[in-house]
Nucleic acid binder design. Sequence first.
DNA 1: CGGGTAATGGAAACCGTTGTCAGATTCAAC
DNA 2: GTTGAATCTGACAACGGTTTCCATTACCCG
Lengths: 379, 379
Amino acid sequence: MLLQNVLNRYGLRMGRPIRTRRQATLASLAAELGVSRTTVSNAYNRPDQLSPELRRRVLETARRLGYPGPDPVARSLRTRKAGAVGLLLTENLSYAFRDPAAVGVLEGLALACEDAGVGLHLVPASPGNEDVAAVHRAGVDGFVVYSVPDDDPHLGAVLERPVPTVIVDQPRVDGVDRVGPDDAAAVTAMAQHLISLGHRQIGVLCMRLARERNDDFVSIQRQSAAHFHVQRIRLEALAAAFSAAGVDWATVPVVERFDHTVDDGASAARQLLDAYPQVTAVICTSDILALGALAEAERRGLRVPQDLTVTGFDGITEAERSGLTTVHQPVLEKGKAAGKLLLSSADRVGPKVITLATELRVGRTSAPPRTVEERWFGP
Amino acid sequence: MLLQNVLNRYGLRMGRPIRTRRQATLASLAAELGVSRTTVSNAYNRPDQLSPELRRRVLETARRLGYPGPDPVARSLRTRKAGAVGLLLTENLSYAFRDPAAVGVLEGLALACEDAGVGLHLVPASPGNEDVAAVHRAGVDGFVVYSVPDDDPHLGAVLERPVPTVIVDQPRVDGVDRVGPDDAAAVTAMAQHLISLGHRQIGVLCMRLARERNDDFVSIQRQSAAHFHVQRIRLEALAAAFSAAGVDWATVPVVERFDHTVDDGASAARQLLDAYPQVTAVICTSDILALGALAEAERRGLRVPQDLTVTGFDGITEAERSGLTTVHQPVLEKGKAAGKLLLSSADRVGPKVITLATELRVGRTSAPPRTVEERWFGP
DNA sequence: CGGGTAATGGAAACCGTTGTCAGATTCAAC
DNA sequence: GTTGAATCTGACAACGGTTTCCATTACCCG
């Protein structure tokens, strides 16, 4: 400990090749030059405030001393600008990077940040981790919160921070900017599509509804108590539309999956179809789950869409390629919009909500259901 | 401006809902409580240094005053720890997020960071942008540099910073930690595979070799002067292997593409095959390009592998799905290794190089070439 | 030659913490 | 009532900059 201190005092550092002879600071550089700290600072930040000749000397000496320019942290402290925005996504990072919809949002956000010349700080916050210290430790000028449950402790920590915040998709928090599609309208359009095709025996696959795992059928109570706002809204919209079409929502099986992979979609479809072989349409709240459902249908020898209709949500490339009937939402734009909203929030008053357009894309996976006779005796 | 100042003085902020009444600091909280700043600081950082009762009072008052805990930037300045690592990738962000190989690295790195509880700071540095200020502004404890050319100004800026750095893939810089596959060995194995199949008339598609765009054939000079170390090594390894097999490398057409998309791969293949219809194998330095080449082959009515052999590099999922013959490299592990290496570099002395294992995966896109007779008169 | 005006550089306050260390307080034991 | 140990607390000095005035000098012009 003592040795370490001594080394520190002289700006030496252990354990690394000595690339820079000592830790030069703005002050030591000023001393070396015999000028004030102000002047050195100006050399970097306000070239017009000192003569070109002196500036050249300053920079030249800096190079000679290995001074890498003003320390970013100290500068941030003084200017109250970190030059970065934080991204909070309470999701297993693996899935965040594997789901093309999430990657799209990330990409859009990154683009917006790049345009503005600010960094994007990914805050480490795995789902099981209740430790919000990472949120407190992040030196950022604002936060984008992407798809977290309304009872997530990290969300609370973010909202406590005195910086602007934009929430993408969910949850809906009063007084906080938000970017997202009109999920209810989008899902309603999808429901109308299926209803008009004649489907009445439906099943639903949805993403996780709460922070606790429940890879099983979902009760009505759990549906309406879902902490993931988007999922709740989508289920409610489906319920409303199908109820209006004479379907008793209490009889509609809904299967939940905690993890969001194609395999989970397949297993959910298996669980659904094992218990409810009579369903004619499987509605999925994401394309990933729907791709899994398609795989399971194939495994069972069910032809899509003749024997089974499958629909998704998001409009990812893979879905388009496989002809999935889905709701397309502009994920890239969503991320971009979030970034722009956040970065412009300084000169705006009051919270703002941006609603993105969605589009029902009817593909090759939806068709009228077969009649009971057809189901049993063939076409 | 005046109004703004007055508001600031009282900790009020315009343009946002008033969620926090004033900007409380550790000092003001201490004053309110009638204790010293040290005590408040201890309440947050060293709970054992003060009585539970007092700590409770401190935290309770903090909540009442809307004090969000110690300012992260000030804390970072004092402790000399930013709690984040920077990621420099001089690539159009769009491509970085669209190339599964890059996303894999990103994911692995993010996982390593999450494990260590540190943030991941994406540094905005688009290819055309010569402004390295973003690098200087990033408050991070270290940098991971991913796939940048050896003459990139951002790289220089990173190396000037007095923090540990790990380079992934390229470039190779003396004294700096590095993580990457043994490209030469991997490519040599691929070349041997093709040579043993009997291919002598080959063409190559490669990613960009320098920061200036050149969507065209590549001269020998440009090949050996490539600023992207990985591409240079791969070409050199190919040249060595095929020369040894009696092929004059000067006669081998190499087509370069600046952007890295499937479409670019297709257009490169078109350019290659238009000018050199006699090639029997197209070797691509990435799977993305190879997928494009496959698409172009199909467009031309060439059967793969009977009429044309196509190979890639990376081993991304899409390649596997399409049966591409390729070299698989563990991209996720690569990112993870980089993160771990960086985060452990404090207690290590001297630079370290980690070489990852690669594996030649022969798929359905490589086979012996057809003879000239077969090419003209059918099998 | 006096006075106004740029141009240039400097002094000092401040940004919000943490860490050290010495002093204060409490409490039990004698 | 004193003492020593065990706890707490507070003063003060960093951490490495930026920025707001000021002071000085040089210059221009009548």
